[in-house]
């Protein structure tokens, strides 16, 4: 049996918001350590890897591994019904046909209970080996979201160029070009505002702007985002959770 209670429903709301436009159906795999999701978008360009660690829950219990096959659009309709500050409890039997979603208001005596039908989904869990990256950038997630939104208005591709001194985001479209250059710096007072650039080898990669626009839907999950890049390889974009992470692996574009 699974019984997981969040102190606030906001975390699950943000998680669903962050992934529902990239994947429609996915398995939530529940183990004693927490909940994981791995899913690939229909075009097989973007992979989502989510871990909501046990410590993200106020109370968590999962005696046996349980798989919840969830339609995220339906789940989102229910999860939106809770207030962000409500307790959120997920309950499922060992071989469940549905999952119970319970919201509890902290001040009033209001309890809202929903049941979501589960689906039987294929689960081909992918073992992603530890990848080697040539450059790592950590920056404020809101800044990365703004750069993505701004440059996407010019082109359907977004180029990321990393040198020793800086990282340059660049787009080249029909009516014009744009770029944003960031230098590494440390903000002692607000560490989350810092920009950290670690580069072993210079990087010049091009990505589909629409996929990065989907990735930055994770912005509300974390103050900062870490971007890991390697030549002609998928990039890793990571938003840290209080216990766990939301990672996106994005295949690049390149000349054949």
């Amino acid at each position: 049996m699974l019984e997981g209670k969040f102190e606030e429903s906001s975390l699950m709301k943000k998680v669903v918001d962050a992934i529902k436009d990239s994947v429609k159906l996915c398995n939530f795999n529940c183990t004693e350590h927490g909940v994981t999701v791995q899913a690939v978008d229909d075009s097989r360009v973007l992979l989502i890897s989510l871990l909501i660690g046990e410590a993200s829950f106020e109370e968590y219990r999962c005696d046996r591994n349980i798989t919840l096959g969830i339609d995220l659009e339906s789940f989102n309709k229910i999860i939106k019904n809770g207030n962000s500050s409500d307790f959120l409890t997920l309950i499922a039997e060992d071989s469940p046909d549905n999952v119970l979603i319970i919201f509890e208001d902290k001040k009033k005596d209001r309890v809202s209970e929903y049941s979501l039908k589960l689906m039987d989904l294929d689960s081909d869990f992918l073992q992603i080996d530890d990848m080697e990256f040539d450059a790592t950038i950590t920056m404020p997630s809101s800044e990365f979201a703004k750069i993505t939104r701004d440059l996407k208005t010019l082109s359907e591709s977004l180029q990321i160029i990393v040198t020793k001194e800086n990282v340059k985001f660049s787009s080249d479209g029909d009516f014009g070009t744009g770029n944003v250059v960031l230098k590494g710096f440390v903000d002692m007072d607000k560490p989350d505002e810092s920009i950290k650039i670690d580069m072993a080898r210079p990087i010049n990669l091009t990505f589909g702007a629409k996929y990065i626009a989907d990735i930055v839907k994770g912005t509300s999950l974390s103050e900062s985002v870490t971007i890991k890049l390697a030549d002609k390889s998928p990039a890793l974009f990571e938003y840290k959770l209080p216990s766990g992470f939301l990672r996106f692996y994005l295949a690049p574009k390149f000349d054949e």
Partner: peptide, 14 residues
């Protein structure tokens, strides 16, 4: 022109 790659090219099990 840049071609979009898929993850299957990099992760064999996809």
């Amino acid at each position: 022109h840049h071609q979009q790659q898929t993850l299957g090219r990099f992760f064999s099990s996809l």
